[in-house]
């Protein structure tokens, strides 16, 4: 009796091993799909536009669009890894840009610090309501998004806010912007991948209570990550102002949606957790921008572009989401 039991268990285990291998392969495929998508989208649009898309000049233009999204997406990436959400990024960018503009009249380093601090402050407000008052992150950040959008409109009621044009214009070159972006990305990658910071975030996303019982100060982590995300977007405000020169009422508008779409396109699981990879940020942002730019170079109307974007978005989500899990999806 006992013996047959053991044998049967081993058989089951072997079957499990097979199933697991299949699952591993499936998840690997899902993991590289965004990369394949990125390559495919780039090639298709390059061919369709007769090589215009990836022409050196256009690449420069493309890159200048990708910086802000990519930097801001890094902060949101951390938040989403923990299973949280942040819809206030666009307003953070707008407010930080305004602060940057005002302070740029004194000097640039002060302005950068000011922008970062402004972003961090809004992040702290998000974190306070989310962590201390236990309001859903989605609800909190929608409120702050709305609230600070109002403040931005208020500040730009009469005219767009302008910084010191001479100083900011002098910084508008790809080397500066790319350097900053790379520094942000590499730093974030390093901490996410090679220190306990990333592991803790993933653990919180995969099972918050168990993470707390493993000795992680989850509330503190969550609070700090919201501040961090705000600060990172505050830094992105610098690049934003340098690029566009002034802040209007709609500055940063819809950035949060762009980031979310970019991350999802990059293969980011929406509820965070163990399967999150840092590549999601880079691949996703690039894919989003190239898809956009590709549709523009084809000369499509904005509405048609958006239609295609929406369909592509849903297809990608449908392919990359793990439908076999029995988890309840809200």
């Amino acid at each position: 009796m006992a013996n047959t039991d053991v044998i049967k268990n081993d058989e089951v285990l072997a079957a499990e091993e097979k199933a697991l291998k299949r699952a591993v392969i499936a998840s690997r495929v899902r993991a590289i799909l965004p990369v394949i998508g990125l390559v495919a989208v780039s090639l298709i649009f390059n061919i369709l536009s007769n090589g215009k898309l990836l022409a050196p000049m256009n690449i420069k233009l493309l890159m200048s669009q990708v910086y802000v999204t990519m930097i801001a997406a890094t902060g949101v990436f951390f938040i989403m890894t923990m299973g949280g959400l942040d819809f206030s990024q666009g307003s953070i960018l707008g407010i930080a840009s305004i602060v940057f503009c005002y302070l740029s009249r004194f000097n640039i380093p002060l302005a950068i610090i000011g922008g970062v601090l402004a972003g961090a402050c809004i992040g702290a407000i998000n974190g306070y309501f989310y962590v201390k008052r236990k309001v859903k992150s989605f609800v909190v950040t929608i409120c702050t998004m709305f609230l600070f959008r109002g403040v931005i409109e208020f500040a730009t009621t009469n005219a767009p806010v302008q910084g010191d044009i001479v100083k900011t214009m002098s910084l508008d070159n790809n080397v500066v912007k790319m350097t900053i972006t790379l520094i942000v990305l590499l730093t974030a990658f390093f901490f996410f991948r090679f220190t306990k910071f990333g592991r803790y975030l993933k653990a919180i996303g995969a099972g918050e209570k168990a993470a707390a019982f493993s000795g992680i100060e989850t509330d503190k982590m969550k609070f700090m990550v919201y501040i961090l995300a705000g600060a990172i977007t505050g830094l992105a405000a610098f690049i934003n102002v340098v690029k566009v020169g002034s802040v209007t009422a709609s500055s940063g508008n819809q950035l949060e949606t762009q980031i979310m779409i970019a991350l999802v396109l990059g293969g980011m699981p929406i509820s965070g957790g163990a399967k999150v990879k840092f590549e999601n940020v880079v691949v996703g942002s690039l894919l989003y921008i190239i898809l956009n730019a590709g549709l523009v170079t084809l000369g499509l109307t904005p509405a048609l572009q958006q239609l295609i974007e929406g369909i592509v978005f849903l297809i990608v989500v449908a392919i990359t989401s793990d439908r076999n899990s029995v988890q309840i999806v809200k």
């Binding site: 993933k202 653990a203 995969a206 099972g207 209570k209 168990a210 993470a211 019982f213 493993s214 957790g273 163990a274």
Partner: peptide, 8 residues
């Protein structure tokens, strides 16, 4: 819920 992070 409390002893192990189940989705890891």
């Amino acid at each position: 819920n409390e002893s192990i992070v189940i989705n890891q």
